[in-house]
C-alpha cells in the first residue's frame, strides 16, 4: 500500500469522511487478515475483529490527530481487539503462546509464513495435507515462494536478497509449484 494513499485517506477519516474510512478498510484488509492469522487460525474471529477495529476507529476519530505511525497504531489496536474477542468467544483456554507480544513495523513475519499458510485453511484435513506438501519443499524453495507471492518481491529483488541468479530463482520457483501441484493437497482440492 502506498503511504501517500494511506495518509490521504487517514486524513479524510479524521475529518469525518466515511469514504476515507472505507478506503482505509480496503487498504488494510489483506494485511490485517494475515496478521490475524499469525495469532489465531479462526477466520470468522478475524473478520469480526476487522469489523470492530474500523467501527472503533470511526468512533474515536476525533482523538486520532496525534497518531504518528498510522500502521503501527492500527495494528496495535487490532491486536488488542482480536485478543479480547477471542477471549470472549473461545471456550477453550487461551492459546497464549501464539499471542504475539511486540508489534513492530514488519507486521507479518512474526509467525512463520508456513504457519500462516496453514492457519489459513479451515479444514483440519487440508491443514495436514498442506503441512505435508510444504514439508517436502526445500527451505530455499519455501523462501522463494514467500518472497515472490507473500512479500510480493520482483525476481530482481529476490536475486539481490538471495544472491542467486534470476534464472535460478525462476527454475526453483517453477519446480516448487510443480511439486506443490502434484501433492495430495492440490490434486484433491483442485476442483
Amino acid at each position: 500500500m502506498s503511504s501517500d494513499q494511506l495518509i490521504k485517506n487517514w486524513n479524510l477519516l479524521l475529518e469525518g469522511d466515511k469514504q476515507g474510512l472505507y478506503e482505509c478498510f480496503d487498504l488494510f484488509y489483506d494485511d490485517l487478515y494475515r496478521f490475524g492469522l499469525s495469532m489465531y487460525s479462526d477466520q470468522e474471529l478475524i473478520k469480526d475483529s476487522i469489523q470492530s477495529l474500523f467501527i472503533e476507529l470511526w468512533e474515536i476519530k476525533d482523538k486520532l490527530v496525534d497518531v504518528k505511525n498510522i500502521k503501527q497504531y492500527i495494528f496495535t489496536i487490532f491486536k488488542r481487539i482480536i485478543y479480547k474477542l477471542n477471549k470472549k468467544f473461545s471456550r477453550e483456554n487461551l492459546d497464549l503462546d501464539r499471542l504475539l507480544e511486540e508489534i513492530s513495523e514488519d507486521l507479518v513475519v512474526q509467525s512463520s509464513y508456513e504457519s500462516i499458510l496453514i492457519a489459513n485453511q479451515t479444514e483440519e484435513l487440508k491443514r495436514q495435507q498442506l503441512q505435508e506438501a510444504l514439508s517436502l519443499l526445500s527451505p530455499r524453495q519455501k523462501e522463494i515462494i514467500q518472497l515472490k507471492y507473500f512479500d510480493g518481491k520482483s525476481f530482481r529483488e529476490i536475486a539481490e536478497i538471495t544472491s542467486l541468479s534470476e534464472r535460478t530463482i525462476y527454475n526453483t520457483l517453477h519446480n516448487a509449484i510443480k511439486f506443490l501441484r502434484e501433492s495430495p493437497y492440490f490434486s484433491i482440492n483442485k476442483s
Partner: peptide, 20 residues
C-alpha cells in the same frame, strides 16, 4: 491467492458492505 495469503476481492467487498 493461497500462497500470497490474499483474500478474494469479493470477500473484502462483502466485509466492507457489512461495515457500511
Amino acid at each position: 491467492l493461497l500462497l500470497a495469503v490474499k483474500r478474494k476481492a469479493t470477500e473484502r467487498q462483502e466485509q466492507l458492505n457489512r461495515l457500511k
